[in-house]
Structure formats: structure tokens, C-alpha cells
């Protein structure tokens, strides 16, 4: 437990559980990053930040501090 998007390895998937609303920008939600949606880590930028994810059909890049705020359960 305690997994977040930041703890995914490249290629791994998870289901978004919840996040603290204050820490997550509204535009990220509006682009489809919502609880219950599948998220997959596609790439990590060379200096370990930002993360390139696919969530709810959208391809997005988010910073690691945002990724750490989004709790997930890993899919195996």
C-alpha cells in the first residue's frame, strides 16, 4: 500500500484511488485524471522528472511532486 503514480515503473499500470484536492490542479482532473481511472507510466524524463503518463485516454506529462499526491493501486 501507499503507492502513488511516482512509484510506478515504466510500463506499469495502476488504478487511481484518491488524492488531496488541494494538491492537484483542477486542469489535471479536467484532462481526465480521475479516481477509478487506469493510469500507465510511459516514460520518465532523463532527470527523473517529469513523468509521462497515459490516463483515461490522455497522454500527459506531470511533475513528480504532483504524481506523489495521487494514490493508486498497482495492477499486476
Amino acid at each position: 500500500m501507499g503507492d502513488t503514480i511516482a512509484s510506478l515503473l515504466i510500463g506499469e499500470k495502476g488504478i487511481i484511488q484518491d488524492f488531496c484536492l488541494d494538491a492537484i490542479p483542477l486542469n489535471l482532473l479536467e484532462m481526465g485524471c480521475l479516481p477509478g481511472k487506469e493510469v500507465r507510466l510511459l516514460q520518465i524524463a532523463p532527470l527523473k522528472d517529469p513523468l509521462y503518463i497515459k490516463v483515461n485516454g490522455s497522454h500527459l506529462a506531470i511533475r513528480i511532486e504532483t504524481a506523489k499526491q495521487i494514490n493508486i493501486t498497482k495492477l499486476r
Binding site: A23, M31, P50, A61, I62, R63
Partner: peptide
């Protein structure tokens, strides 16, 4: 400030 950084990676 709080980071609002989100970018789309278009096809």
C-alpha cells in the same frame, strides 16, 4: 506558488 504544470503529449 503551487505548481500547475500539466502538459499534453500530442500525437
Amino acid at each position: 506558488t503551487q505548481s500547475l504544470f500539466v502538459i499534453e503529449m500530442p500525437n
